[in-house]
Simulated scan of single mutants.
Amino acid sequence: MKVGITGGNGFIGRHLADALEDPIIFHGNLNEIDNVREFVLDCDRIYHLAGKNRADTGDILKNNIVSTANLILSMKLENKYPELIFASSQQTVWNADSEYGFTKTLEEEIIKKADRWCIYRIPNVYGPDCKPFYNSVVATFCYQVSKGEKVTINNPDVQREFIYIENLIQDLLSPEFSTYKSPNGEVLTIGEIYSFLTDRAGEHKKLKMCLDHYKREED
């Protein structure tokens, strides 16, 4: 089976590519239909991980909807229907009115136009090499703690579900079609995460691995 990945240079994409044998990484522009048609023809399965999650107002919607729709349109134009596995977000549930949550909800409906689809509603992902100050509070805290910088926490009691990258990858490798999947993570408060990286360092193995990663980068 030839497996393609959009967003192969992202955090999840890089780890997924390492877990696959000779994946086809999409390097073109998903907003350009001709690029997408060529990609679709090469693939028996596509992991659609690409998409903006931070941008000026309107840009997330404009970019992601066109990109995802182009995958489906390419399948129809080429009469080639690879399995389509989509990285959605739990923000479709708990932050549905944000531009990102709203966009993911719309993308899910587009994805279901594929013959064989699986939608993963993914919680907050963390792990070594995740990008700080982007979309991971764990990566940001690890970076700041490793540098001895001050960490600002607005509400330490806010709870979120977090999943370690390797656990997510294992789940992604076992899709179930015509359904939604919600990979199981761990519910932690923001305050607990900070504590596991400071005064309780070492008690949470996976958070310690993340912190150690950023400490090594400082050496």
Score class of each variant (00 low, 15 high):
residue 2 K to M: 13
residue 11 F to V: 04
residue 11 F to W: 10
residue 15 H to P: 02
residue 26 F to I: 05
residue 27 H to C: 04
residue 33 I to L: 15
residue 33 I to C: 01
residue 35 N to D: 15
residue 40 V to M: 04
residue 41 L to F: 06
residue 49 L to I: 12
residue 56 D to S: 11
residue 56 D to V: 04
residue 60 I to K: 04
residue 62 K to P: 00
residue 64 N to I: 02
residue 67 S to W: 09
residue 67 S to V: 05
residue 68 T to F: 06
residue 76 K to Q: 15
residue 77 L to M: 11
residue 78 E to T: 13
residue 79 N to M: 02
residue 81 Y to T: 04
residue 82 P to Q: 10
residue 86 F to Y: 15
residue 86 F to T: 04
residue 90 Q to I: 07
residue 94 W to I: 10
residue 98 S to G: 12
residue 101 G to R: 09
residue 102 F to W: 05
residue 103 T to G: 06
residue 105 T to K: 14
residue 106 L to K: 11
residue 107 E to C: 14
residue 108 E to A: 02
residue 108 E to V: 01
residue 111 I to V: 15
residue 111 I to M: 11
residue 114 A to S: 14
residue 120 Y to K: 02
residue 122 I to G: 10
residue 124 N to A: 13
residue 125 V to Q: 15
residue 126 Y to M: 06
residue 126 Y to C: 05
residue 127 G to M: 08
residue 130 C to N: 14
residue 132 P to A: 03
residue 135 N to L: 01
residue 136 S to Q: 11
residue 140 T to W: 12
residue 143 Y to T: 04
residue 144 Q to W: 08
residue 145 V to P: 11
residue 146 S to A: 15
residue 151 V to K: 11
residue 153 I to H: 01
residue 155 N to T: 06
residue 158 V to Q: 14
residue 158 V to R: 15
residue 160 R to V: 00
residue 161 E to A: 02
residue 166 E to V: 01
residue 176 E to I: 03
residue 179 T to N: 08
residue 180 Y to N: 05
residue 184 N to Q: 13
residue 185 G to K: 08
residue 186 E to R: 14
residue 188 L to K: 14
residue 190 I to L: 15
residue 190 I to G: 06
residue 193 I to M: 07
residue 197 L to M: 15
residue 199 D to A: 05
residue 201 A to Q: 05
residue 202 G to Q: 06
residue 206 K to N: 07
residue 211 L to Y: 13
residue 212 D to C: 00
residue 218 E to K: 02
